[in-house]
Simulated scan of single mutants.
Amino acid sequence: MTCAAETIRDLPLAHGSLDRAAHRRREPGLLDALLSDPATRVLELVGGTVEVVGTDGELSLHQRPPVPADRHRLAVFLGQDDGGPAHVAVVGDPVDEGDPRSWRGLRQVATVLDDREAGMLATALALTNWHAAHTHCPRCGHATTPEQAGWVRRCGHDGSEHYPRTDVAVIMSVTDADDRLLLARGAEWPEGRFSVLAGFLEPGESLEAAVAREVREEVGLEVGDVTFLGNQPWPFPTSLMVGFTARAVGSAIELDGDELAEAFWVTREGLAERIADGRVLVSSRMSISHRLMERWYGQRLPTTGEWRPARS
């Protein structure tokens, strides 16, 4: 594996600047103290969304003082800069359908928030997703409870500690000898939604080996010249996307018949045409998949062909 001379440096979610202040997590009663302090800034998540304020072009996270109900909710200490307030994320109750506040998902606001707030929201979402999926001990099956300000869960039966997990995935823009880009549609994706290939790292595997294996498994191609381009936290639910380019040896595609519904090679002109007429919908510019495609394309992709989920 090599590293590109010019990596992708402006990936959303990848430049959070809040000091996580990890040394404070073991302080006894930290969350109780912070949630009793009106100076604490609370980021409330409801169904994976957060309240935002401002106009669509200049949105920011709404962070409020603590309320009494927060002390009975799942809470996570996000961090604290020197001399600044502490930041805590809480999982709130469902809101009424007529709630006048503006609630948005991370995909909707990642490219509008500043780096600090986007990183804060990504951390909060990844941690709360992990808590929701790990309520019981994998060793004995008994219930676990949060500790260390939300950064650990402990089993009440065997005392074992469990830490937040991050699932590492590789994502790669694969090109052929004619510098065409390989695009694919997942078997469960809607018609027209396409992206570059991706897959999870397996135990005992290097990143470059995962790139080669995933391409081989999904489209039957061998690749070389695997080059690292950048990485991005991806809290859907708890992943880290590690981006690469790779050069295919040959161009004959053999679909795996399981994970992919279709795949094809495309030129730059062909991609522009397919986006313009709606045959190809790509992920939003917040994602590393979009940036990998954009790097190959040589300029910003047309935005008329972006696929966006409704809320998250």
Rank of each mutant, 00 (worst) to 15 (best):
M1V: 09
A5V: 12
A5S: 14
R9G: 11
D10V: 09
R20I: 00
A22N: 05
R24N: 02
R26H: 11
A39Q: 08
V42G: 00
V42Q: 00
L43H: 08
V46T: 09
G47I: 01
G54R: 11
L59G: 05
L61C: 01
P65L: 08
V76L: 05
G79T: 06
Q80H: 10
D82R: 15
D82A: 15
G83Y: 02
A86R: 02
V95W: 08
T111R: 13
N129H: 14
G141H: 03
T145A: 14
P146N: 05
E147C: 11
G150K: 03
R153D: 01
H157Y: 11
R165Y: 04
R165E: 10
M172N: 01
D176M: 08
A184S: 13
W189F: 08
E191H: 06
G192N: 03
E202G: 01
L221I: 08
G224R: 14
N231H: 15
T238N: 14
F244Y: 15
F244T: 05
R247A: 06
V249W: 13
G257D: 05
D258I: 13
L260G: 09
A261I: 06
W265M: 06
T267D: 12
T267E: 07
E269T: 10
E269Y: 05
D277S: 11
S284I: 09
R285K: 13
R291K: 12
L292M: 03
W296N: 02
L301F: 03
W307H: 14
S312V: 11
